[in-house]
Simulated scan of single mutants.
Amino acid sequence: MAEIVILLAIKKIGIALAKGATDQASVQFAKYGAQLLELQGSMGRVARELRVMHDVLCKMDIRNRSNLVYEGWLEEVRKVAHVMEDVVDEYLYLVGREHDIGCCFFLKKGFKKPRSLLCLNQIAFKVKDIEKDLSHLSKTKNRWVPMINNEDSSNLSYIVKRSQELANILRSLDEEDLVGVDKNREQLEQWLAGDDQECSVIALLGMGGLGKTALAANVYRKEREKFQCYAWVSISQTYSREDVLRNMIKQLFKDTASVLSSTLAMDIMSLEETLKKYLDQRKYFIIFDDVWDLETFHDLSRMFIHSDNGSRVMLTTREARVAALASRGHI
């Protein structure tokens, strides 16, 4: 995911601009103080631009990710972030090659010492070019990417697409595909199987690309049969409450064609009451995937009647304030 690539580049720049590296650079390039300061200033500007891009990416609705224009722009951002990371590696090696200040510990895995290290000016020129590339990408996004919002991106289409993606994940996801998540998976399974009969809320919190949905899908596949009914609900930044309710009913009443047929003409209030009545009698497991704000969860959670039957609600989110809605100690 581009978000992680950008964060790695930002972290690497932070190491290059930390006190240990800057002090060593000041000693090693004492004769080139002005050039060094200019290079460090350029690195700082690149880091700030990348951080803004990262924040924008984290806030963009995931529906945009399927658009070719957006994907093309995202790939260019990813390339620039990789180039910046390589350039900072060269700088760290140049600064730390004579004195062990710990810089080389942070070099990218597989980094190879060049036969002839780039001089300070060459590195500075590269960083300047990266600055220009990022500025161009920002302008390109403002000029072209907003056009994708004019395309058909209805909430129902989004929900159908996300449901298809989930189905593909559940079919193809093997245990070996989840690396380094055993502790988190075990914790989730313990919370789901806990003795607490109250309906508890569990939150998976993390930035985009960390694998929240994959982990949730793995647990959902393994644990859902332990509940009387279950549903996976995909949310977006802007969602249709009616579409979400109908999607839940479709999953929960999948074996009752007559009920499904009777809900076709129902308004939102009737749909909500139907769900409340159904869930009140059963031990259910509901996952809300990709929840962006507090109001969304509060809106949807009104249908849950806490009838002490061991039901569980799980949500995945990038927002800490949303995760804070989880039951105590269940993030």
Rank of each mutant, 00 (worst) to 15 (best):
Q24C: 09
L120R: 10
V52T: 12
G211V: 08
L170R: 15
Q28L: 15
S116V: 10
V322M: 08
Q35V: 14
C229P: 01
L94P: 03
C199G: 04
E273M: 09
V244W: 04
K109D: 09
T22L: 03
E71Q: 13
D129W: 04
V259K: 13
G329L: 07
G72K: 12
M266T: 00
V27H: 14
I6D: 08
R65S: 14
G310S: 08
V145P: 08
R97A: 11
R224S: 10
T263D: 03
R241C: 02
D133V: 02
I202M: 11
D182C: 02
W144I: 14
A30H: 10
I4E: 15
L94F: 06
A167S: 13
L275G: 06
L315S: 12
G96I: 05
L36N: 11
D177Y: 02
Q164N: 13
V127T: 04
L39R: 11
E90V: 08
A21I: 14
L204K: 06
S154A: 07
A231S: 09
Y278H: 07
L68Q: 12
L156Q: 14
L188A: 07
Y32N: 13
A326L: 05
L188H: 05
E272P: 00
G110M: 00
Q197G: 04
S135N: 07
D299M: 13
D152P: 03
F304V: 03
G211D: 12
A9T: 04
